[in-house]
């Protein structure tokens, strides 16, 4: 169980400048095996929230705990898919995907079948010995996802993992992620800016306000699984979507398009 209690994170800039409050008084409990989607406007502190759970940053106030113990540093049970490019350019695609396993078990500890399967599922066949700079942006992102999944972590922290993918690949990846989740039941914290994706994947969606990020809505998505693609056309689905969008864009001005 992951627990955030009254968590505030402020960044202190140069002397004399006001500290920048990225996350303000967030309380959140995530059960084991839960799939939590987080949406919110750009700059509202979603990445900051993941960084706190990952253990890259310490909260300015409040507690961040995993199984009742304070999180003080990153750990292999919490795999991260970063928003920024994070592949190691000196390694091949295969070496990047196997990186986590290799650190733990050495080169011989990497199961070639598991690696081949992961490469295949990510649609990267034939690119095993390419270098990251020889891949497209979407392919690089898939390598980063594969690297996180390879270690079969208990907790998956994913920061807009499918942002750089086209619609088709994105839904392939979503299906793959859900299938994997169904089998291994990791706890997933999934940050996205796509409300539809959040409702489609999540057991629960947390909506954050603009900076300083607070929780504006915490809603359980009570839709049956396995979910079909045509779910997005259903009435219930659109009800959820409407409620979330109403929170994200409360005033008429910001919701006007044309």
């Amino acid at each position: 169980m992951i627990e955030l209690a009254e968590v505030t994170k402020a960044y202190y800039g140069a002397k004399g400048q006001d500290p920048l409050v990225a996350v303000n008084g967030v309380s959140l409990t995530i059960q084991d095996g839960e799939f939590l989607a987080i949406v919110g406007p750009s700059g509202c502190g979603k990445t900051t929230l993941l960084n706190l759970v990952a253990g890259f940053e310490a909260p300015t106030q409040g507690r961040v705990e995993l199984d009742q113990e304070a999180i003080t540093r990153p750990g292999p049970e919490r795999a991260v898919v970063f928003q920024q490019p994070s592949l190691l350019p000196w390694m091949t695609v295969a070496e990047n995907i196997a990186f986590g396993v290799m650190l733990k078990a050495g080169r011989v500890g990497v199961d070639p079948h598991q690696l081949a399967h992961m490469v295949h599922m990510m649609g990267l066949d034939g690119f095993e010995s390419h270098r990251p700079y020889q891949l497209s942006g979407g392919m690089q992102q898939r390598v980063a996802i594969a690297r996180a999944l390879m270690t079969e972590p208990r907790i998956l922290l994913m920061d807009e993992p499918f942002g750089a993918l086209d619609a088709q690949t994105r839904s392939d990846m979503q299906r793959f992620l859900l299938e994997l989740w169904k089998v291994n039941r990791p706890t997933v914290l999934f940050v996205t800016h796509d409300v539809e994706e959040a409702v489609l994947l999540g057991d629960r969606v947390v909506v954050m306000t603009a900076r300083p990020g607070q929780i504006a809505l915490d809603i359980v998505i009570d839709l049956p699984r396995p979910r079909q693609w045509d779910l997005v056309l259903s009435h219930e689905f659109n009800q959820y979507k409407r409620r979330i969008l109403q929170v994200l864009r409360p005033d008429r001005k910001s919701s006007r398009i044309g």
């Binding site: 990952a54 890259f56 540093r73 990153p74 750990g75 292999p76 919490r78 795999a79 991260v80 970063f82 920024q84 490019p85 994070s86 190691l88 990186f99 986590g100 650190l103 733990k104 690297r147 270690t151």
Partner: peptide
């Protein structure tokens, strides 16, 4: 970020 990748995997 690259350092963090390594730290994440322990």
């Amino acid at each position: 970020t690259r350092l963090r990748v390594a730290q994440v995997f322990g």
